[in-house]
Amino acid sequence: MQVLSSRLLVRPGDVEKSTAFYRDVLGLAIYRTYPGGTVFFLGQGFLEVSGHGEGGGQPDGMAIWMQVRDLAAAVAELSAHGVSPDREPRLEPWGLREAWISDPDGLRIVLVEIPADHPLRTDVRSN
């Protein structure tokens, strides 16, 4: 199988409310729009909000992982938009700083800051 492109699809209960959340609250840039949907840039991928789903939560184990530069600043910015974290920022045992929020349908969004000394940011190549 040769994968040429991919994106995460979200089918919210209220497409306008969810589109506004991802666009206005999270500040995701729009890649493209079409009748009934919006595709957002999501780091190195895409998030498409379209159609109508049942709403009301996330599939078991499903979450959106978003790396941010400064977790405290991101949480403060979201707070200014009326978004309270489901779980306050904390340092996880695996060395990442994380906070959790939810979209309007309850889909978990994990906000992640990678500390400067974490292996994900450390050049481990031989000199």
Rank of each mutant, 00 (worst) to 15 (best):
L4Y: 03
S5D: 14
S5A: 14
S5E: 12
S6W: 02
S6R: 05
D14I: 06
V15L: 11
F21G: 06
A29C: 02
A29H: 04
T33E: 15
Y34K: 00
G36M: 09
V39E: 11
F40W: 07
F40C: 07
F41K: 09
F41E: 13
L42E: 08
G55C: 02
G56I: 08
G61F: 10
M62S: 15
A63F: 13
A63V: 10
A63Y: 13
A63T: 10
I64H: 04
W65P: 00
M66D: 04
M66G: 11
M66C: 15
Q67K: 12
R69G: 14
D70L: 04
A73H: 09
A73M: 11
V75P: 00
A76E: 15
A76M: 06
R90C: 07
L91H: 11
W94F: 12
G95F: 06
G95D: 05
G95T: 05
R97A: 02
E98Y: 00
W100D: 09
W100M: 08
I101E: 09
D103A: 03
D103V: 02
P104S: 09
R108P: 14
R108E: 15
V110L: 15
L111I: 14
V112N: 11
I114D: 13
P115H: 07
P115V: 12
P115C: 13
L120R: 12
D123Q: 07
V124G: 11
